[in-house]
Amino acid sequence: MYPVEELVQKMISGNRRALGKLITLIENDPSSSAVIVPKIHNLTGNAYIIGITGPPGSGKSSIVDKLIFNYRNEGKKVGVVTIDPTSPFTGGALLGDRIRMQRHYTDEKVFIRSMSTRGSLGGLSEATANVIKLFDAFGKDVIIIETVGTGQIEVDIIKVADTVVLVSVPGMGDDVQTIKAGIMEIGDIFSVNKAETDGVEKCISEIRMMLELSEKNEVWIPPIIKTYGNKENGADDLYKAINNHYTYLIESGIYGKKRVFRGKNELLNIIQNLFMKNLYSFVSEDELEELAEKIANREKDPYMVIEELMPKLRKLYEVF
């Protein structure tokens, strides 16, 4: 293994292998971020970040493929992170999003990395934010994150994006429900994919209705765009909508504000993860489990338990 310092130098000078290895370090060991990020942070902040989320099979990866194509036509360098769930039973994952992006495999201006959610979810959003920083420092102009949209986790991950695209497909009534459940608010653009299917207009009007219900005090009204992930140029309109959103963010000054907001999220996230990590070095999982049982059978109440834990929690403060 190379020392981190050397890997960072190589990565900055354009070495793809070094970038690949640094991503692995960040994925495997959150504490390595504390070493890597300080060396690259001042090189970042230049990339435009797009988040794409939606149910499995809705066509996200196919759309990403089209967007890569569009950005490459503009001469932009593109980084892609795809995130898929780890099996809770085996810890393994089959990562095949890149199959849809085959035509870009040997384009050296495109870098695609597949990640799986692994264990800790707080850890995942911290890791994703840092992987994006690596891409940014590597010189990517556009970074696309693909996640399976099912809830809060995605919301947290996708918070790093400048533009969030929510993908849905006609004829899956439930999906609109899924969107409604928690992530509707974070959508800047709605893509209705497989738009050649019957029911596309119904799907669009359902989304429009829900958008009207959610009051968002912003000038930007999320457009609803038809896409065809399996067709040449099938996401051109989406690409245009993303560019419009970018222009809007810049002109309204929201772009800068979003970045401050993101910085704050990053901090909170790191603090939370740090806290949790240290917590476990003072209070064991078993002990927590035991206490939880007492709370469950009404032997104790949670505030009483906190009082008992106080001496340990005080030690935790000293660590900070």
């Binding site: 793809r16 780890t86 085996t90 393994g92 990562l95 890149r98 199959i99 040997t106």
Partner: peptide
Amino acid sequence: LRDAGMEVIYTGLRQTPESIVETALQED
């Protein structure tokens, strides 16, 4: 391999040696 707890990256059919090696680097 996935069921044995590994993360398996799958690339699809008809890959060239160049595309395979490039993928291996990116996916580390």
